[in-house]
Design a binder for these strands. Structure first.
Length: 306
DNA sequence: CTCGATCCCTGGACGC
DNA sequence: TGCGTCCAGGGATCGA
C-alpha cells in the first residue's frame, strides 16, 4: 500500500528512467479512475517529462509547456501542467519495452520516444490519474498539509495538540500531514508508545515531539529500504521493498511486542485496522481491542515479513 | 469539528 | 474443487 516511502521510491525510479523523455501517444483502458480521460489523450502527446516530484502520496510528472504549437521547456515555478498520479492501494507505474506484453489491469499506456511505454497498472483502481494545468494543480495541492519530513517538531507538536481528533486519524489526515497512511501511522505510534485512539489534544508536548521524531526516522529508513511490500507493491524497477521486515506493530496481531513481549492487539481506529501493544501503548477509556483472530494474514503471503 | 457509515474495486484467504 | 463471504484500505461523500 503505497505511502510516502513507497511513492518516494517509485518517484526516484521514474526520475532515473523517464525524465527527459517525450510522450508520443496515449492509450487508455478503463478510465473510471481518471479525472478527464480526454484531457490526457489531447494534452500529453508531444510533451516532455521534465521532472518527477512527490507530493504526499501523489507523484507529479511535470510536463513541458506548449506555446503557439511550439513546445517550450518550462522553468522553475512557472511549470504549466503536470500529470498527477496517485497509486491508491494497488497502483503501479513503470516503463517497459513497448513490445513487452502488458500485465493484467494495465489501464494507461504512455508511449515514449525511445520504444518504451510508461504503463499504469491498478487492479482495484483506487488510484487516480489527472492532467492538471497550473491553476487547478495549485488548487489541488493547496488542500494538503505539511510534508512529515519537512515540518518542524515545534510546529508538529503545536498542531497535533490543538486537535481533538484521534492521533491516528490526524497522522493519516492528508490535510494535516501529507503522505502518512495506515502502516507508518501504526509504526510510529508503536515507537512513540502512544495508543492510536488517543486524542491529539491530550498528548504531552514531549510525546508529540517524540512522535514527530520517530515518524521521521521511520519514514527515512523506509525510504532507504525502498518501502514496504505488503501485498503487491513494486517500485519502478519491479522490485519489492524491504521495510516490511522492520514492522514492529503493523500486521503483527497475536505476535509478541518486540519491546515488552506482550501480545500485539488490533482495534479499529479511524475506520482502519490498527495494531498496537496494549502494554506499551495503553488504551484510553472506552477503546477495546478486537478479539484475537487466528487469521494469519501476512504470514501466508510470499516473501513478506521476516 | 469530528465521527461513523458507505461506496468504490479486485484478489486472496478462509469456511463449508 | 468450487462457491460464498469477508477483508484489505485511500479517499470522497453524507448524515449525525
Amino acid at each position: 500500500m503505497p505511502e510516502l516511502p513507497e511513492v518516494e521510491t517509485v518517484a526516484r525510479g521514474l526520475r532515473r528512467t523517464i525524465v527527459g523523455r517525450r510522450i508520443v501517444s496515449v492509450r487508455l483502458g478503463k478510465t473510471d479512475f481518471i479525472d478527464d480521460p480526454a484531457a490526457l489523450e489531447q494534452n500529453l502527446p508531444g510533451r516532455l517529462i521534465e521532472a518527477v516530484e512527490r507530493y504526499g502520496k501523489f507523484m507529479l510528472l511535470r510536463l513541458s509547456a506548449v506555446s503557439g504549437g511550439e513546445f517550450v521547456p518550462s522553468n522553475g515555478d512557472s511549470v504549466p501542467a503536470a500529470l498527477l498520479v496517485h497509486l491508491g492501494m494497488t497502483g503501479q507505474i513503470a516503463p517497459s519495452a513497448a513490445a513487452q506484453p502488458s500485465e493484467k489491469h494495465t489501464h494507461a499506456f504512455f508511449t515514449l520516444d525511445d520504444h518504451r511505454e510508461l504503463r499504469y497498472t491498478d487492479a482495484r483502481r483506487f488510484g487516480r490519474l489527472a492532467y492538471l494545468q497550473a491553476e487547478s494543480l495549485a488548487e489541488e495541492l493547496r488542500a494538503f498539509g505539511a510534508d512529515p519530513l519537512e515540518i518542524s517538531a515545534e510546529e508538529f507538536a503545536k498542531q497535533a495538540r490543538s486537535r481533538r481528533a484521534r492521533i491516528k486519524s490526524l497522522l493519516m489526515d492528508q490535510g494535516f500531514l501529507r503522505g502518512v497512511g495506515n502502516i507508518y501511522a501504526d509504526e510510529s505510534l508503536w515507537r512513540a508508545k502512544i495508543h492510536p485512539a488517543r486524542l491529539g489534544v491530550v498528548l504531552k508536548k514531549e510525546q508529540a515531539v517524540l512522535l514527530h521524531r520517530v515518524l521521521r526516522e521511520i519514514l527515512q529508513k523506509a525510504i532507504v529500504l525502498r518501502g514496504s511490500s505488503i501485498s503487491d507493491f513494486l517500485d519502478a524497477e519491479g522490485q519489492p521493498g524491504e521495510y516490511q521486515q522492520h514492522h514492529r506493530a503493523y500486521g503483527r496481531e497475536g505476535e509478541r511486542c518486540y519491546r515488552c513481549g506482550s501480545v500485539i492487539r488490533r482495534a479499529i481506529v479511524a475506520g482502519r485496522s490498527s495494531y498496537y501493544c496494549p502494554k506499551c501503548q495503553p488504551a484510553p477509556r472506552g477503546c477495546f481491542a478486537l478479539p484475537l483472530s487466528r487469521r494469519k494474514s501476512g504470514k501466508s503471503k510470499k516473501k513478506v515479513g521476516g
